[in-house]
């Protein structure tokens, strides 16, 4: 055999990352049900292959912008789960000092520009970061994650258009999970694939099975290399599926139980990847069980950390909202 295109070490990192995201999200669901997590949570269960396959091609200095369903992106990019869990709990040890919550997890030290409660809101952030990279003559890359619904928003059109005009080092990754909240994809776009939109902006676009982490990895690798080599932006549509509702508590009456069960049985990205690694003798059942246990322990530790962390003080409520003080904003005078 020739030298493999991807190392065993990287493959195992990908598997561990996907398991970590799954365990994190399932635990977050429990915590939300126990009323320990304020606000909304939108979980990434079922979509783990997309964040993992893309981020596996990034370095620490590269940027990502995320969505309201952003825990998976943050974890894949190397985010500290103690800080994110504390953020979910609204505690001062959270990555936004407990003021952001699930939909605003940010960590600039790892290039995570932030989850975003605004649909498509992360797209201009990634484009801006890519512009900075280009102006500074760096070889970093920015990746914008967004959903199929976001691709109907002006943020998408303006962001992708500017990136194309300025040939910016950015990769647009649409996580098409088939539903814009409750609206099926077929009722929100006349086209079959968000990738078809790439042509309108004069950039390459590709559709990939978002449940197959190796396929995502390979497509992302090419798109990210293009961006890093100064060849401009690309659009990737990863066709995926969320195994939970749009948000925790969503009764999801817009899809059938049969459809959900089919995806879980046939297209679970972790099961698909595990099967491949077992076949290739890269992973054993024992290894897999150990990884699962290790990730459960890590998440449990993060939960304990979050639970034992202090709440923000009342007098700090207006701190850290703007990076500098802003004259004329009366709210600050309260």
């Amino acid at each position: 055999m020739n030298k493999p295109v991807i190392s065993e070490e990287k493959l195992l990192w990908m598997y561990e990352t996907m398991v970590k995201i799954r365990v994190h999200e399932e635990r977050a669901a429990e915590l939300f049900a126990e009323n320990k997590v304020p606000g909304f949570v939108h979980l990434y269960v079922g979509e783990e292959a997309v964040a993992t396959g893309v981020v596996a091609n990034l370095k620490k200095e590269d940027f990502i912008s995320s969505t309201h369903r952003g825990h998976g992106h943050y974890i894949a990019k190397g985010g500290d789960i103690k800080a994110s869990m504390a953020e979910l709990f609204g505690k001062t040890t959270g990555c936004c000092k407990g003021k952001g919550g699930s939909m605003h997890i940010v960590d600039l030290s790892i290039g995570e520009l932030g989850a975003n409660g605004i649909v498509g809101g992360g797209i201009p952030h990634a484009v801006g970061a890519a512009m900075g990279i280009k102006l500074n003559g760096l070889d970093d890359v920015a990746v914008a994650f967004f959903g199929d619904g976001a691709s109907n928003q002006q943020n998408f059109h303006e962001g992708i258009n500017l990136a194309a005009i300025w040939k910016l080092p950015v990769v647009f990754v649409c996580e098409n999970n088939g539903y814009q909240i409750s609206l099926p994809y077929s009722k929100q776009q006349i086209i079959n694939s968000v990738a078809e939109r790439g042509k309108s902006y004069g950039i390459p676009a590709v559709s990939v099975d978002g449940q197959d982490v190796m396929a995502v990895y390979e497509v992302a690798k090419e798109a990210i290399e293009r961006a890093r080599n100064g060849e401009g932006p690309s659009l990737i549509e990863a066709k995926t599926y969320r195994f939970r509702g749009h948000f925790e508590g969503d009764p999801a009456i817009y899809r059938t139980k049969k459809e959900l069960e089919w995806w879980k049985e046939n297209k679970d990205p972790i099961i698909i990847f595990k099967k491949l690694l077992l076949e290739k003798n890269i992973l054993s059942e024992d290894d897999s069980a150990l990884i699962q246990k290790k990730k459960e322990e890590e998440i449990e530790e993060a939960v304990k950390f979050a639970e034992s962390s202090p709440w923000p003080k009342k007098e700090d409520i207006l701190k850290d909202v703007f990076s500098t003080s802003t004259k004329g904003v009366l709210v600050w005078e309260w």
């Binding site: 079959n192 790439g198 042509k199 390459p204």
Partner: peptide
Amino acid sequence: KDIRRLVSHASVFD
């Protein structure tokens, strides 16, 4: 719509 849109000069067939 496959990866050849990225690695070659193929275009999307919509």
